[in-house]
Design a protein around this nucleic acid. Structure first.
Lengths: 329, 329
DNA sequence: ATTATTTTCGCAATCGTTTGCGAATATGAA
DNA sequence: TTCATATTCGCAAACGATTGCGAAAATAAT
């Protein structure tokens, strides 16, 4: 059983294709009796309009592209989940492509998005220093782009970010309030702008308090975070708190805590920036500053729709952070 | 700058659209000089073929549908990652839709897939007792379907599953070999076929050993697993091993272990069925039987391509399990 | 120079849907 | 009956790309 088309329905009922089309759209020009016949037959033949034909004619695919570094990442997953939820409500579908943090794959993906004439693109760029020309070309081709999370340093684009500075400051202030004096802060890769923003905000806040001893470390992955942690937890002197810039670092730190058999929050304290799923895995649950991919997705989608209805002035929006008390501090 | 089309190139060079099309495809009918001119202009105008037009004519979208319960799930993420990798190599894209474990959303999604004339569908059904008619209709509409993970009990379809029985048996045998005598086994929701298969294989294996005391419990989520664990770990008598059917259960159990301050593997042992990411979060790392979503994706894709080239006889394939030693047993 | 052959390209139909415009039919008014 | 209006529908073009077939132009053969 091949696919039902307007033509097929038209042939069976011996009427024109246009009439069938209009009947299905409940066009006033078509008589009630004809409409009924058409709709009935369409039902039994399970007619579904061919999206490609519709799109070709309307020049609107109702598909959004979403480009992320990797799909096996909680943060981006919840971003996607949020976007998908909203997209579905508005009759859009998603075309999700991974860049693997590789600029070449990124450009390859842009090509695919252009070929498929996506109605818009949600993009998270892979690196700091990236060639933005292909993105500018997309905008010229009238494909709106909303950058999220890792965004370019370019005012011509719409950007939705976490309020990294606020979050880092909030974490720092919390540590200070709790009277922590000897803090180990582990950040991600130096190169990343997200690291720079969080680091500068965090240490800037700490700098005002001379009595606090702050150790700043960087880890490129979970295992490095584990090693750094063990390095600084010596029998003679242990930090009284650890700040984790990300989930990846948190998991490394926690593994180390378990190995050292440290009891939270008595032996030391922990605070993290996280979307909240990992902190809830542990007992006691980790106190964290929420950086929600889900909220980010909601806001990014909102911005996209706003852009589409004509509000094209580039904006940079932020997701505000929230303190979530666990039992680790 | 609107989008470049064949027509636009043709007009500029004052040749026919057909010639442009053939030139870009390096057709032998076209002279070298013409080809050069066309390709050059296409380059500068950044021509990208309109996928909708191509698909409409070729009746092949080069898009695979992927339907999963939720995208915020490690297992399905790695499945998708695998499928995407392979799809990209073959020039396919993915249309990922979530069912939210809701049969109605599932049917809604099938509609979207049909409208978009996907070249094939990877589907993970939401429940045990589902109406399979819509899926049969898809097959009749010549859209190949490969079910994965949660598959229907219907021989007409292709199915790619984890070798649940093998995995459960492997876990059980491992526990027996280690000389465990008092085992708490926590499974997921009763209703799920995956639970039934794993449970029957596991307890079937245990039944042959009368000297082993086996407690079987069910938990619908992580928190329930946590509660059940605490319930059975009494000061007087503690199980000497816990079997966790899934990551969700493992995380609950581990939280409970941390609360009770149990040291693995001395105070008790743990083994899980998992794809491996969660077991590596803990210290000591959890011993597990690997149930890889990634491998599942690779195999599912392979099967899909095999089907497409004409091998349409329905098959049921399994991903074999692997014992991965951690330090928890 | 004439015919045969090859090179090079354009016409037109097609995929499935939408829509402006005009035509046919029906209904009403006079 | 005749003209005016309303109802109902079909024609054809368009979206962008592909391709069989045939035609014109260039080259080779006699």
């Amino acid at each position: 059983m091949s696919n039902t088309t307007l033509k097929k329905i038209a042939k069976v009922l011996d009427i024109s294709i246009s009439t069938v089309s209009r009947a299905l759209k409940n066009h006033p020009d078509i008589s009630v009796s004809t409409k009924q016949k058409v709709m009935e037959l369409a039902q039994t033949l399970e007619y579904e309009p061919n999206a490609m034909a519709v799109n070709l004619r309307s020049k609107n695919t109702k598909v959004f592209g979403v480009m992320i570094p990797s799909i096996t990442n909680n943060f981006y997953d919840s971003f996607i989940a949020a976007v998908e939820e909203e997209a579905r409500k508005s009759g859009y579908s998603l075309m999700i492509l991974q860049s693997g943090d590789n600029p070449e794959a990124e450009i390859e993906n842009l090509k695919i998005y252009r070929q498929n004439r996506v109605s818009g693109l949600f993009a998270c760029i892979s690196q700091e220093t990236i060639n933005m020309i292909p993105y500018h070309k997309m905008k010229e081709a009238e494909i709106p782009i909303v950058f999220f999370d890792k965004v370019p340093d370019d005012d011509a684009f719409d950007k939705i970010c976490l309020a990294d500075k606020d979050a880092a400051v909030l974490a720092a202030e919390t540590l200070l309030e709790k009277g922590k004096k000897n803090i180990l802060a582990i950040f991600g890769n130096h190169q990343l702008s997200i690291t720079k923003r969080r680091l500068s905000a965090f240490s800037g806040c700490m700098k005002e308090h001379k009595q606090v001893k702050l150790i700043v470390e960087h880890a490129n992955n979970s295992q490095q975070a584990e090693e750094k942690t063990e390095h600084y937890f010596q029998p003679k002197q242990k930090p009284d708190a650890v700040f984790c810039m990300s989930d990846e670092i948190l998991t490394g730190v926690m593994k180390s805590m378990q190995r050292m058999n440290m009891k939270l929050p008595v032996d030391t304290g922990i605070i993290a920036l996280s979307d909240g799923s990992f902190p809830k895995l542990y007992y006691p649950e980790i106190t964290y500053i929420e950086t929600s991919g889900y909220k980010l997705g909601k806001l990014a989608f909102e911005r996209m729709m706003d852009y589409i209805i004509g509000n094209t002035e580039p904006k940079e929006l932020f997701i505000t952070s929230r303190y979530v008390a666990g039992g680790s501090l």
